[in-house]
Computed example of a mutant assay.
Amino acid sequence: MDDLLTPAQAATQWGVSYATAARWAREGTIPALHVGRRYYYRQGTVDHVRRARTTGVAPYPNHCANAGVAMTMTWGAARSGTLLDREEWALTNAARTFDYLDYGKDSWSQDHHTAVKMAEASPGLAGQMLVHRKAREGVVDAVCHSFSQVIDLGCGLPTMRRAPHERGRVLWGSRARTVYVDHDLAALAAARAWWEHPAQVRGYNVRVLDLDLRFPETLVNALGEHLDLSVPVGVLSTLTLDHLQDEELAGLVEALAARLAPGSGWGVTHLSGMVGAAGVYTDQAREQGADTRLVARDSDGLRKVFKAAGWGRWRGLSPRESGGGEPPIAALTTLGTSTHPDRTDRASWTAPPERHL
């Protein structure tokens, strides 16, 4: 990444203003690295634009769209070198791969390659991901309507048309609190730039935490610092539990059941089956030395894990595609009173919230 030039350097070499250089990048005219609210350019891009200006041919719109890097990060992280200097940039990334499968925009060529191999191994994957978008919307709506405090485990890259904290703001006003959790560098940086920044959330309670779900005790302790866990809260995990081994998943579910108040709800989406895709992704990650994997599960197996930890009233929400095929797992479950006999159930999926507009 040593050939990256700052916006001021690129604009000076082109003989244009900083605003013009940023506009070209924002409109997709030329490839650039998007860091917070700034754009950075490769030397090759600068040379191309200089030649175009010298010959009188506009450098747009017929550029190579894949010649640059498209990824959102925070300026502070890029400036400190915590992202630019890491070798993980060359590895297949879970957040970017599933962003590509979910018809997002923040993915690279190595992620495309892995996603294509996954789809070849499991032909139903593309159909599941298409249905998953609608299923995820239903799960997020149900959780945000029922709880003013929401925890999004494994938030990933911002691709949803309306994020949970935005829905909570409309439904609950200043009472809404949202905590996003992830340990992926790209996802953290993007979430902090788009969701935690004061200009974006306008003073509402939004936090983005760098936590690994494989260490649930650390997770629940951190959540207690930002949320009132004595009252029911809503938990979201959309295409997140797929990346946990069975023992890691059981530990996470049990830890949250022990700490959250009865009546808390959990909205889940999970790929159904897809053994071939899971094997391809895990093998690819193992070859690269990446600390990630994909685990294939069915709805019954996932429900048993939650039921064993005290989560009951499993309510499936999986829509079926008109063309048939196995839909993704999408469900809502509520924490019962068995884990906290001295408390009462104070939340329901069907109870509408008091609106504060």
Score class of each variant (00 low, 15 high):
255 A>E: 02
295 V>F: 08
184 D>I: 03
8 A>P: 07
1 M>Y: 02
253 V>L: 07
304 K>M: 14
72 T>H: 09
62 N>L: 13
207 R>A: 13
124 G>W: 01
99 D>A: 08
290 A>Q: 06
318 S>R: 00
292 T>Q: 08
244 L>E: 02
296 A>E: 03
150 V>D: 06
262 P>R: 02
37 R>N: 07
2 D>G: 13
167 R>I: 15
3 D>P: 13
353 P>N: 02
185 L>W: 00
192 R>F: 08
149 Q>C: 04
272 S>V: 10
164 P>F: 13
82 T>R: 12
116 V>W: 03
285 A>M: 15
34 H>V: 12
266 W>C: 15
230 S>G: 14
231 V>I: 07
35 V>H: 04
50 R>Q: 13
145 H>K: 09
41 Y>W: 10
298 D>E: 11
305 V>L: 07
196 E>C: 14
263 G>C: 09
190 A>V: 04
9 Q>T: 11
87 E>W: 01
292 T>N: 06
170 V>P: 01
89 W>T: 04
112 H>S: 10
131 V>C: 15
277 A>Y: 03
85 D>R: 02
196 E>K: 06
85 D>K: 02
65 A>D: 09
101 L>D: 05
58 A>S: 11
237 S>T: 13
252 L>V: 06
196 E>P: 15
239 L>C: 12
288 Q>G: 08
129 M>A: 14
27 E>F: 05
260 L>Y: 00
107 S>A: 15
23 R>A: 14
213 L>H: 01
113 H>E: 14
191 A>I: 01
213 L>K: 02
42 R>G: 15
264 S>R: 01
202 R>M: 11
105 K>H: 11
300 D>S: 11
289 G>Y: 03
128 Q>W: 06
326 E>A: 14
135 A>G: 04
11 A>V: 11
218 T>C: 14
36 G>W: 00
292 T>H: 07
25 A>W: 01
56 G>L: 02
16 V>F: 02
23 R>I: 10
172 W>D: 02
303 R>T: 15
257 A>L: 08
177 R>L: 04
53 R>D: 05
293 R>P: 09
107 S>N: 15
274 M>H: 04
42 R>L: 15
44 G>K: 09
175 R>F: 06
96 R>F: 03
45 T>C: 15
149 Q>I: 03
133 R>S: 12
71 M>H: 05
335 L>A: 06
273 G>P: 07
180 Y>W: 08
224 G>K: 01
19 A>M: 12
121 A>N: 11
247 E>V: 15
109 S>N: 06
48 H>V: 11
220 V>K: 06
189 A>H: 01
319 P>W: 01
191 A>W: 00
3 D>F: 12
101 L>V: 08
18 Y>S: 10
20 T>P: 08
269 T>P: 08
323 G>V: 10
327 P>E: 10
75 W>A: 13
229 L>H: 03
67 A>Y: 10
125 L>D: 00
145 H>A: 14
181 V>K: 00
214 R>G: 15
211 L>V: 05
349 W>A: 12
353 P>I: 05
158 P>R: 00
287 E>D: 12
